[in-house]
């Protein structure tokens, strides 16, 4: 069976790690799938989905690491008004951070649960917040 759901939520910070592990686990439980796989995908281009250990210190280190790689004050070509939006594209850093972080994560489902390592948590990464964001969670299996 294939069970696909979407979740929409507000982020509150410019750069923010939102732990969505419970959302994904909940979607797996609701699907009733015992053996299979789950994929979580962001619908956006200035966000990411990743897996890491959910520690405040690591969140801080990752933010700093990304900020050094992709500084706010670089002369990005994307810093301009986009006519088809009718508004400024001030978010080149968000697009580039999204590029590094990727837009999805996969996990195996075993015995009805997401089979992840003890330190693994799933993060939705906001790089151009605050904003309203949507993710898709697809559970496949039986």
């Amino acid at each position: 069976m294939i069970d696909t759901t979407t979740r929409t939520f507000l982020t509150s910070e410019y750069n923010q790690f939102v732990n969505i592990t419970d959302l994904v686990s909940g979607a797996v439980a609701e699907s009733g799938v015992r053996e299979g796989a789950v994929t979580v995908i962001s619908k956006h281009t200035t966000t990411g989905i990743t897996t890491n250990e959910a520690l405040e210190c690591l969140e801080s280190d990752i933010h700093e690491f990304l900020a050094k790689l992709i500084p706010e004050d670089h002369p990005y070509a994307h810093a301009r008004v986009l006519k088809d939006y009718g508004s400024t594209a001030g978010n080149p850093t968000g697009h580039l951070k999204s590029l590094l972080m990727g837009n999805h994560a996969h996990f195996i489902i075993r015995d009805g649960e997401v089979d992840k390592g003890g330190a693994q948590e799933i993060y939705f990464c906001e790089f151009d917040g605050p904003s309203e964001r949507t993710i898709i969670i697809q559970v496949m299996g039986e």
Binding site: F9, T11, S12, E13, Q16, F17, V18, N19, I20, D22, L23, A54, E56, E59
Partner: peptide
Amino acid sequence: MRSGPSGM
């Protein structure tokens, strides 16, 4: 869903 610290 849990979020990192934010400064109000």
